[in-house]
Design a protein around this nucleic acid. Structure first.
Lengths: 205, 205
DNA sequence: CCTGATCCTGACCGTTTGGTCAATATTCCG
DNA sequence: CGGAATATTGACCAAACGGTCAGGATCAGG
């Protein structure tokens, strides 16, 4: 997807755009779009505010670029479900992958959570387009497995919602989780075991 | 909990404070704390900005009052679990109650979602205190049921997390849900059936 | 009907914030 | 080296925002 028509980026451009997106992820995921300021982003990136705006014309543009950059990575695990694999293994693997992403990339998780809470003003086209297609493809696979009797029959899209909501819960509502569990526990490790058990019971034919 | 020492409220105070909280719920749930402005709240309440600040000294105070007012209602369903009832019925009833609250009070759901995403700056004492106690009480009941073999054994706190995350998902991420499901479907009705099935399979001993 | 308390508002203030711009520094390349 | 392209910044601006305040309107009780 590297732009062929646009002029190639200099090393400096590459580096600074990256620094800015880095800083923007920090700021946006912590405070939401409106809560984050360009100054915060600039500081986190180690650049001056006008310099940040030299690379991205506006706060909106930074946000959009960040979402676009991260969306692919965020949806990747679902596309790695292997239609040829063992159904239960594949679904449990997906759950596990999603949960680990919540643990390892909580800022990205929060970024998308904010965006969708807000009504997804910068993601509408993707939500209605690409995302739906990706889900549809997965749904086809799931339904085939159910038809073949290799997976218990459940509404596949709601199955996916359940996976999204529960795995992201550990990242987005981490504070609540920690408050309820108390100290000295590993929320994600425990959650992983719980979810494994849950989906095994739900999906074993 | 009605304050006995404070002077009683006049009708006007009662009405206007209520209007303001009403408007604040609208504004905060749509845009988050930083995204909402006092002007928005005032407009939604049908009052002038200085008049809003006559009743609540600051934006922060409005937010705090709103959270405090709604928290009780938000946690009520869990306290209605009947320790003497049938275990599966009680849990499924709780799931159902939570889901209906998401459908009927999506603004409240989003309000809390924003707050917790933000790091719960106005709820820390509640998260560490009251909430944990309420959960602990429910956990005791759940564990007893599991000990008696009337409920399959799972980690009770993660069971609660799963209920929270999935039911709130339908309110907080409604846009995403609608985008994936397409039109002409009833997300909550379908979700209800899915969740009923899921928890039945998970919890039947 | 009077008076004090409550209620309400327009005008205003200081700060923050997104964004601009002219001027300067740095890099790139023939 | 030298000049053009690129990169960087301090100073600045207009709008938005949270909040204040003096004064006027309204209401409740005697």
């Amino acid at each position: 997807m590297t732009d062929a028509s646009a002029p190639p980026m200099t090393r400096i451009q590459q580096k600074n755009r990256d620094l800015i997106l880095q800083g923007a992820l920090e700021a946006f995921s912590a405070n939401g779009f409106r809560g984050a300021t360009i100054d915060q982003i600039a500081k986190a990136a180690g650049l001056s505010k006008p310099n940040v705006l030299y690379y991205f014309g506006s706060k909106d543009e930074i946000h959009k670029a960040l979402l676009t950059t991260l969306l692919e990575m965020w949806l990747a695990p679902m596309q790695q479900i292997d239609p040829q694999g063992d159904p239960l293994d594949q679904v449990l693997g997906y759950v596990r992958a999603k949960l680990l992403m919540s643990r390892d990339y909580p800022r990205e998780s929060r970024l998308f959570a904010y965006e969708i809470l807000q009504g997804a003003p910068h993601l509408t086209e993707i939500l209605g387009g690409g995302l739906r297609e990706i889900v549809d493809r997965t749904v086809v696979v799931l339904e085939r497995w159910m038809d073949e009797g290799r997976l218990a029959r459940v509404e596949p899209r709601h199955l996916i919602f359940s996976i999204w909501s529960m795995t992201q819960h550990y990242a987005d509502f981490e504070i609540q989780v920690r408050a309820v569990l108390g100290e000295g526990r590993d929320p994600v490790a425990e959650g992983g075991a719980f979810l494994d058990d849950l989906y095994r019971k739900l999906l074993t034919p």
